[in-house]
């Protein structure tokens, strides 16, 4: 006689969201917030900014949901929205970059957290974090987001060939850097 939306499949939640059901959209946000945050963090390298961008991603996506093609993967579409928002943040940040030197990661508030974070940012994580954006973001999308080259090309709006090259070179740099730390 009645249904619980939280158990429903993604497509139904999206249809209901399109109809304006905020509860359904809340469920979508719950399911995708970590993934979207991860992509925003890959682009922004700043936890607080990634958090804000994640919120903005879901608000913007809600208002543009009619542009989403239901036959395609929702994750690819929401990552595209996230990537555009984060790129805009980077562009705005770049305008003011002469005012401050951004640390590797911000958003860790307590000294204990900072120490813990610094301890953990070694090895592969440090290598990934220190990569140039153009290598880091496709790598994260590929090996954490499990996206295909074609999907990454769509999300980042760059040719598929470029995606392959950047992933290859990024991986090469991580290996070199990682090997260097290990020796």
């Amino acid at each position: 006689m009645k249904k619980k939306l939280r158990n429903k499949d993604e497509k139904e939640l999206l249809y209901r969201s399109l109809r304006g059901e905020k509860g359904a959209w809340g469920e979508i946000v719950k399911r995708y917030k970590d993934a979207v945050y991860g992509i925003n963090l890959a682009i922004l390298k700043d936890k607080a900014e990634a958090e804000d961008a994640t919120q903005e991603t879901f608000i913007k996506a809600w208002y543009n949901l009619e542009k989403y093609d239901m036959d395609r993967k929702f994750s690819t579409w929401i990552f595209t929205v996230a990537s555009n928002i984060s790129k805009n943040v980077v562009r705005k940040r770049d305008r003011w970059s002469f005012l401050k030197d951004l640390p590797l990661m911000r958003g860790s508030s307590t000294p204990e957290e900072v120490v813990e974070t610094e301890k953990r940012i070694d090895g592969i994580r440090s290598a990934v974090f220190n990569l140039k954006d153009k290598y880091r973001v496709p790598l994260i999308l590929r090996y954490w987001g499990e996206k295909s080259y074609a999907e990454i090309s769509e999300i980042l709006d760059i040719p598929e060939g470029t995606v392959k090259t950047r992933i290859y070179r990024g991986k090469e740099r991580v290996e070199v850097s990682f090997a260097g730390e290990g020796s």
Partner: peptide, 27 residues
């Protein structure tokens, strides 16, 4: 790469607590 990034995002999951509520409030 996948594991490390996943762990980092997971360790930040508290930051995202209640994010859905904030999104719904704003829309």
């Amino acid at each position: 790469i996948g594991q490390e990034w996943g762990q980092m995002v997971e360790s930040d999951s508290e930051r995202l607590d209640g994010l859905e509520g904030e999104v719904l409030r704003q829309i």
